[in-house]
Amino acid sequence: MKYALLIFPKPGSHEALGPDEYGPVNAEYLALREDPRCLGGAHLQSAETATTVRYSPGQALITDGPFADTKEVLGGYYVLDASDLDEALEFVQRIPAVRLGGAVEVRPLVEIPMEDGF
């Protein structure tokens, strides 16, 4: 089963790290990508860099900024191939954002089988 691990850091938690702390925490994130179960992941730029696209009758409506104002902002993600939810949760507990006061949402991906010839 593949899982999306959506990382919501506590606002300001990473910025509050001292120079001697930031490097090791960043290294922890990168080390998680070396786990063979990790199929990918990335750190997202700040929400202020987002562009949101909605549909308004007859046209696309494109606006600067995130979809909604919120205190919790998606900061990054991993895609994990785990045998079950317990295995995914074990991996999640190693994500630094969790111990720094943030949260990680774990969601199973919908896997659509490829049809022959596609």
Score class of each variant (00 low, 15 high):
34 E>C: 08
49 T>H: 00
29 Y>G: 01
59 Q>R: 15
46 S>V: 13
51 T>F: 02
55 Y>P: 06
74 L>T: 05
67 F>H: 04
62 I>C: 05
43 H>F: 08
60 A>H: 13
70 T>V: 07
33 R>I: 03
68 A>N: 02
59 Q>A: 15
28 E>K: 06
60 A>T: 12
67 F>G: 03
60 A>C: 07
62 I>Q: 02
66 P>G: 07
53 V>P: 05
43 H>P: 10
36 P>L: 03
56 S>V: 13
36 P>Q: 02
52 T>R: 06
66 P>V: 14
57 P>W: 02
39 L>W: 06
42 A>D: 10
38 C>R: 10
35 D>F: 12
50 A>I: 01
26 N>H: 14
47 A>W: 04
40 G>V: 02
51 T>A: 03
61 L>H: 13
51 T>I: 13
50 A>H: 09
62 I>V: 15
45 Q>G: 14
35 D>W: 14
49 T>N: 01
71 K>T: 08
66 P>T: 13
45 Q>I: 13
69 D>L: 13
32 L>N: 04
66 P>Y: 06
32 L>F: 00
72 E>K: 09
45 Q>C: 06
52 T>D: 05
39 L>M: 15
69 D>G: 09
56 S>C: 05
60 A>V: 11
34 E>M: 14
44 L>P: 04
58 G>D: 01
67 F>L: 11
57 P>M: 08
59 Q>D: 12
50 A>K: 09
53 V>A: 03
48 E>S: 12
52 T>F: 05
35 D>I: 06
65 G>I: 15
40 G>T: 03
61 L>V: 14
37 R>T: 00
71 K>P: 03
49 T>M: 07
49 T>P: 00
44 L>D: 08
53 V>R: 04
67 F>N: 01
65 G>C: 05
28 E>A: 06
29 Y>S: 05
57 P>A: 14
28 E>I: 00
62 I>G: 01
42 A>S: 11
38 C>Y: 02
72 E>V: 09
65 G>E: 02
51 T>H: 00
32 L>A: 06
51 T>Y: 00
55 Y>Q: 10
64 D>T: 08
53 V>F: 00
64 D>I: 04
53 V>T: 12
67 F>I: 11
31 A>G: 12
38 C>T: 10
59 Q>L: 12
64 D>S: 11
57 P>D: 13
52 T>M: 00
47 A>G: 03
58 G>I: 06
37 R>H: 02
47 A>D: 12
58 G>T: 02
29 Y>N: 12
64 D>V: 00
41 G>Q: 09
72 E>Q: 12
65 G>D: 01
28 E>C: 08
45 Q>R: 14
37 R>C: 04
46 S>Y: 01
33 R>T: 12
70 T>C: 07
58 G>H: 09
44 L>T: 02
47 A>C: 03
36 P>N: 02
30 L>P: 00
54 R>I: 04
49 T>V: 10
43 H>M: 13
44 L>Q: 04
38 C>F: 03
58 G>K: 13
37 R>N: 08
34 E>S: 15
50 A>N: 14
59 Q>G: 06
74 L>R: 06
72 E>P: 03
37 R>V: 07
27 A>W: 05
57 P>L: 08
50 A>Q: 11
74 L>S: 07
59 Q>P: 03
33 R>W: 10
70 T>M: 10
47 A>M: 01
48 E>I: 05
56 S>P: 07
55 Y>G: 04
61 L>R: 10
63 T>P: 01
26 N>L: 14
36 P>T: 00
57 P>N: 13
74 L>C: 09
59 Q>T: 13
29 Y>Q: 00
